[in-house]
C-alpha cells in the first residue's frame, strides 16, 4: 500500500465517484513514525450514559503539524471523538470514558490534568460561527485576557498577530471596535479561528467549520488551514469528502462509533482496505 504513482486518477473501482486524486494534497508515507505522533488515542470507549455507548475501541494517531480528517456518516461519533480531545464532553452530565488519549506523551485523562488548563492548549472551532456578542477586538483578546497579563500594547500586537494568522486583518483592521456579529459568516468563522489561535494552542479542533459557509469562504478557510498546520496540529471533522481530500494528510473513517480505517488520505481515498470505507468514499451510503 505504498504511494500509488502514474495512472492513479481514481478509475479503480467500478461506478466510483471518488474525488479526483489530483486534488489530494497528502504526501504522507504510510506508516507513521512514533516521533511524528502528536495525539495518540488508545483503546478509547465513550459513553453518554450508562447504556449509551457512543465510541468503541478507538485507536488513532494524529501526526504533529498535519491535518487529520474525521469522516463518516451522520451520528457516527465524529463530534464526540473530537470533543474527547479537549474534554468538552465532560460538560454533559453522566458521560464516562475508558482508555487513554496522549497529547505529546501526556495522558489527557490523567489525574493531574485539569480540563480547563487543557482547553487553553487544545483550541476548538465550531460548526456554526460563534463569536461573542462583543467587538471584533474583544473577541480575539478574550482568551489572552484569561490567561495572560498583557499591557495594552502587547495585547494590541497579539490581537493583530492572531487576526493576520487567520487572514482576517486586512478585512477588519478598520473596524476592530465594531460588533463581531456584523461580519459575514466566513469572516466570523475566521474570527473564531483567530480567537482560538491567539492563545497559541498546540492543537486546533475543527468541527465541520465550513458547513455554514459558501464555497468562496470555504476556500479561504481551507487555504488558511494548510498554512496553519505549520504551527498547529489540526483535527477536522467534515462531511465533505472532497474537503477531506483537499486539506487532510490523514483520514480516519468512523462508522457507528467504531474506527473502521485510518491512514494517509491518499491511501484511504485511492485504496481503502475496508469495503465499508470504499462504499462511503464512493458515496454509496451515508
Amino acid at each position: 500500500m505504498s504511494t500509488t504513482t502514474g495512472s492513479s486518477d481514481g478509475a479503480t473501482a467500478p461506478g466510483a465517484r471518488r474525488p479526483p486524486t489530483a486534488a489530494i494534497h497528502s504526501t504522507e508515507p504510510l506508516p507513521l513514525q512514533p516521533e511524528e505522533v502528536a495525539i495518540h488515542i488508545q483503546d478509547l470507549q465513550f459513553y453518554y450514559d450508562q447504556d449509551a455507548q457512543a465510541l468503541w475501541d478507538i485507536d488513532l494517531e494524529c501526526p504533529r503539524h498535519r491535518i487529520t480528517a474525521l469522516i463518516g456518516p451522520s451520528g457516527c461519533g465524529k463530534s464526540t471523538l473530537l470533543r474527547c480531545l479537549n474534554r468538552m464532553n465532560e460538560l454533559i452530565d453522566g458521560t464516562r470514558y475508558e482508555g487513554h488519549i496522549f497529547l505529546e506523551g501526556t495522558d489527557l485523562y490523567g489525574t493531574e490534568v485539569d480540563p480547563v488548563a487543557l482547553r487553553r492548549h487544545v483550541g476548538m472551532v465550531f460548526q456554526k460561527p460563534n463569536p461573542f456578542p462583543k467587538s471584533v477586538y474583544e473577541n480575539v483578546a478574550y482568551g489572552l485576557r484569561l490567561h495572560q497579563k498583557l499591557t495594552k500594547k502587547e495585547l494590541d500586537e497579539r490581537v493583530q498577530w492572531a487576526l493576520e494568522k487567520a487572514h482576517l486583518w486586512d478585512e477588519v483592521k478598520d473596524r476592530l471596535d465594531d460588533a463581531a456579529t456584523g461580519l459575514s459568516g466566513g469572516q466570523q468563522q475566521r474570527l473564531c479561528i483567530a480567537r482560538a489561535l491567539a492563545v497559541e494552542p498546540k492543537v486546533l479542533l475543527m468541527d465541520e467549520p465550513c458547513s455554514a459557509l459558501d464555497p468562496v469562504a470555504t476556500q479561504k478557510i481551507e487555504d488558511l488551514m494548510l498554512e496553519l498546520k505549520k504551527d498547529v496540529t489540526i483535527v477536522i471533522v467534515t462531511h465533505s469528502m472532497s474537503q477531506a481530500a483537499r486539506v487532510s494528510d490523514r483520514t480516519a473513517f468512523l462508522y457507528k462509533g467504531k474506527l473502521i480505517e485510518a491512514g494517509p488520505t491518499r491511501q484511504i481515498f485511492e485504496a481503502p482496505r475496508e469495503d465499508l470505507t470504499e462504499q462511503y468514499i464512493t458515496g454509496r451510503f451515508g
Binding site: R119, R120, N130, H147
Partner: peptide, 15 residues
C-alpha cells in the same frame, strides 16, 4: 443564552 456562546468561552479555557 445560546449554548454556542458558552462553548466558545469554555473552549478557550475559561472556567
Amino acid at each position: 443564552v445560546p449554548a454556542t456562546v458558552r462553548h466558545a468561552s469554555l473552549g478557550l479555557g475559561a472556567t
